[in-house]
């Protein structure tokens, strides 16, 4: 070993295998974005091509249409099992971002995720969040327990020594597993390049703009960019000073928006 991507890959594979060996009912959240697609790729690495647990997609119904097409295509091609979570009740009552971005995110993403976790009885969910995305994620553990009400007790997180993660939990606790915490945005793209992982076209520049982070159509803005290949995105990232989630409206809704969302169980 010596190459950093090899080390990151090995560590993530280690985490995914630990999760599968120790957590009974496991699922993997797939937002179809670049990070969770890399996570999916790593799961295929860990299990030699055949992922032994279902993918969970939280569909807010406001996702950009290409995202859904892409999702369905690769579920079929890679032989995955897909579970779609949706807060139908909130949608029927007309929930959307105009009711307040944090209210909308909580209802359509957090609550939808909680419902699907409860309905399927998942004890653990693999997520593709990274420490370099924003401050509260930087403080996450690899195995991060969520209590009955799905809340994140960030003031008293379990110790994580020498890759000995907390893998035993009482029945009413579920655990979020974060195999990509160590990765940076740049690492993600370098790995996509090396492994030739197919990602959504939305990430590549069209008419001088591209998406750097993907979410719901009304709350996700594209950024100015001429990067139209993976290689060009890597070059761009090496020189940019704009934060990755600058195009995500919910982050800017409040001084501690992400903390407020994440304490309640947001990804």
């Amino acid at each position: 070993m010596g190459d950093h991507l090899d080390e990151l890959e090995a560590y993530s594979v280690f985490i995914i295998r630990e999760a599968f060996a120790k957590i009974k009912n496991l699922g993997m959240l797939w937002s179809v974005g670049k990070d969770s697609t890399v996570l999916l790729w790593l799961a295929r690495k860990a299990f030699f091509g055949r992922v032994p647990f279902p993918l969970i997609h939280v569909d807010t119904s406001f996702k950009i249409p290409e995202m859904i097409q892409y999702r369905d295509h690769f579920v079929k091609e890679w032989g995955m099992q897909l579970v779609v979570g949706q807060n139908k009740k909130a949608l029927a009552e007309g929930m959307n971002h105009t009711k307040g971005r944090l209210v909308c995110c909580t209802a359509l993403k957090t609550v939808a995720l909680q419902e699907v976790i409860q309905a399927q009885g998942y004890q653990g969910v693999l997520l593709g969040i990274r420490r370099d995305e924003e401050g509260t994620r930087a403080k996450e553990r690899v195995f991060s327990p969520r209590g009955k009400a799905f809340e994140w007790d960030f003031k008293d997180q379990p110790p994580e020594l020498w890759d000995q993660f907390q893998t035993d939990y009482p029945a009413d606790v579920h655990v979020r597993i974060h195999p990509l915490l160590q990765w940076t945005e740049l690492n993600i793209w370098e790995y996509i390049l090396r492994e030739k992982i197919p990602v959504l076209d939305l990430y590549f520049s069209k008419n001088g703009r591209r998406y750097r982070s993907l979410g719901c159509a009304p709350c996700t803005a594209s950024v100015e960019s001429n990067a139209s290949t993976v290689q060009e995105i890597i070059e761009e990232l090496k020189s940019t000073h704009l934060s990755e989630r600058a195009g995500r409206a919910q982050d800017q809704a409040d001084s501690h928006a992400m903390q407020k969302l994440r304490v309640k169980g947001y990804m």
Binding site: G135, A138, Q259
Partner: peptide, 8 residues
């Protein structure tokens, strides 16, 4: 404050 992200 760049690192101490929590409000608390």
């Amino acid at each position: 404050f760049l690192l101490d992200a929590f409000e608390e």
